[in-house]
Nucleic acid binder design. Structure first.
Length: 200
DNA sequence: CCTGCGATCGTCT
DNA sequence: GACGATCGCAGGA
């Protein structure tokens, strides 16, 4: 069942991040539905978190605006000039929080296509086990910024049973050493023993 | 296992 | 002019 209730996303980022583990991310590319299972996420909170692009010290207007959207809207940005990262805004409109989708498990036929086209070593999870690679695999770019996941035909989530606590690993976030004490927040969540997670 | 580095470009200083 | 919520590769322990 597709998630169409905005209330699902209108919780704090550190609550939403583990909540969407195991959910199905659906991407419609010219009518072909690509489905992946979300296996790794990180929470960011502009009010208190120096790692967040919407923090007061980060003066990026448009990034803060995207994260300030109502929960369930997308926030997508270009990183290092060559990769996009896909986020879901959380909480209420005006509260700049969001969840970075760091990795996913490919489901179904598309997996095979990706493998045969690109992967010399036949490791078919190769293209979704990191935030940049995931966007490349799902053809996610800046044109999908500000999209409402509860109404869009291009990208949305499907519900799945909630995972139990002992199926989820909680760690510090990746590559935010510039963020001072906030780098130590335990705001990264991934599915235990899942081979598609970007890093142990 | 680990560390270092280049690619590449929109945004901010 | 500097830098980044990344990635793949090279080289050393």
């Amino acid at each position: 069942m597709r998630i169409t209730d905005p209330n699902f996303f209108m919780v704090s980022a550190d609550e939403l991040a583990p909540k969407i583990l195991g959910k199905i991310l659906v991407r419609n590319i010219n009518g072909q539905l690509i489905k992946v299972k979300i296996v790794e996420t990180e929470a960011y909170d502009g009010k208190i978190d120096r790692a967040c692009h919407a923090h007061l010290e980060n003066k990026s207007r448009w990034k803060a605006a995207a994260l300030s959207n109502r929960g369930g809207c997308t926030y997508i940005y270009l990183i290092y000039g060559m990769y996009y990262c896909f986020n879901i805004a959380s909480s209420l409109k005006g509260d700049p929080q969001g969840v970075l989708i760091r990795a996913a498990e490919p489901l179904g036929h598309h997996t095979i296509q990706v493998t045969s086209l690109h992967d010399k070593n036949k490791k078919f999870h190769y293209y979704t086990n990191g935030p940049g690679k995931l966007c490349r695999a799902l053809n996610i770019d800046i044109s999908l910024n500000h999209v409402d996941l509860t109404t869009s035909n291009l990208i949305y989530l499907e519900d799945q049973p909630e995972l139990s606590k002992d199926e989820i690993v909680i760690t510090k976030r990746i590559n935010i050493d510039y963020a001072g004490n906030d780098k130590d927040r335990l705001w990264r969540f991934y599915i235990k023993n899942n081979p598609f997670v970007s890093r142990k």
